[in-house]
Amino acid sequence: MHALLSTARVANVPSVVSNVWVGVVLGIVMRVYAEEWIPSAPWVPAGFLAVAGVLLYIGGNFFNDWMDHKWDAEHRPERALPRGLFPTRLYAALAVCLMGAGVTVAGAVNLRSGMVAGGIVFWIIVYTVWHKRSAWAVVPMGMCRALLPVMGFLALLPKVDSISMVIMISPVACGLFAYIMGLSLSARYESMAKPPMRVGVMSRGLLLMTAVFLALGNRIFSLDRLASIWGVLPYLVWTGCCLRFWRKPVPKLVSGLLAGIPLVDWMVLLPVAATFAGNPREGAWHLAIVSFAIPPLAFVSALLLQRLAPAT
């Protein structure tokens, strides 16, 4: 069981749910602008999309370990497949079934979300095939995360009648993309005896750009300004501590940054919560509470789950 949980990277599952919820909430904000308020909060589609995101994430991890089993046999013999705990074909079958189920569940919400889920599968495959060959594999890895809020956003839009409506989610997607690229570069080069200085500067620059992108997104959606300022503080404090105090060993740094993914979401969800809290419409207060609570709960859950199985 521990081997399966490690393969699934179960400690990162809460952040997947948080990423999807950001998109769902911003889709609801767009409905408010279009004066198409949903009286009862869309918990059912949000739940389906969260399940779809988790299935895609876990399926991608099984696919990654299946693809790497020969390399792991030489370099990481402690992993499940090199130890002979499971047949390799089982991992391949689980990967196909889980990712196929993820696309199906997302498609059951609507066609647009299903298409984005298919795009996530595409980038999972690109990353898995490429990641041992080039440092540029951080790009498809970032795309996998960046599309999670897009999947939630397109599910809740009143309609997609112009590219501008889709572009509105791009600052949030770009913020996650930059964060995952910065995290991945840190993981790839921090283990070197003398990592290139330019890579360290680039990694930290990307992590800083994450906050810039999210601030831009908050401005586009006209979210509460004071809450936007407060929302960035937990992210900056946690990321700064990871880079300053927990750089070594590298797995500790990577695990800390992975646990911090929901804090990226909180930079949006905290001002969203403040905005909904002042809305008198039915269901707005519930949306405010959930939006406020999900990121810190996902953050704490990730840290607790890392005691059960490694995040990386």
Rank of each mutant, 00 (worst) to 15 (best):
C242A: 15
A3N: 14
S184P: 02
L176W: 06
H69T: 03
P234W: 06
A298Y: 01
M168Q: 13
M151D: 01
G23N: 04
L4Q: 07
H69V: 05
M267V: 05
V20S: 12
V201T: 07
M1F: 11
F276V: 12
E35T: 14
V290L: 15
M181K: 03
V105C: 03
G278M: 05
K194N: 13
G102H: 06
R76Y: 10
A146N: 10
A273S: 15
S255P: 01
R219E: 07
T7V: 14
N279T: 10
I180R: 00
F299M: 08
L207S: 00
N19T: 11
P171F: 06
Y57S: 01
G260P: 00
W238E: 11
C144D: 00
W71Y: 13
I167R: 13
I38K: 06
A106F: 02
A73Q: 09
V129A: 13
V172C: 06
V254E: 05
F292I: 06
V300A: 14
L258C: 04
R188G: 04
S18A: 15
N12S: 14
L176Q: 08
A93T: 06
M30R: 06
I124Y: 09
R83K: 15
P42C: 09
P262D: 11
L56T: 10
N19F: 02
I28M: 14
V10I: 15
S40D: 09
A95D: 04
G260H: 01
G60Y: 04
A155K: 03
S186N: 14
L257V: 05
A93C: 02
V201F: 03
D161T: 13
C174D: 05
V17N: 01
Y189T: 13
I169E: 07
D161A: 12
V16M: 04
N218S: 11
K252E: 12
T88R: 14
T104A: 15
G278N: 08
S184K: 07
A277N: 04
A215P: 00
I28K: 04
A106M: 10
G152A: 10
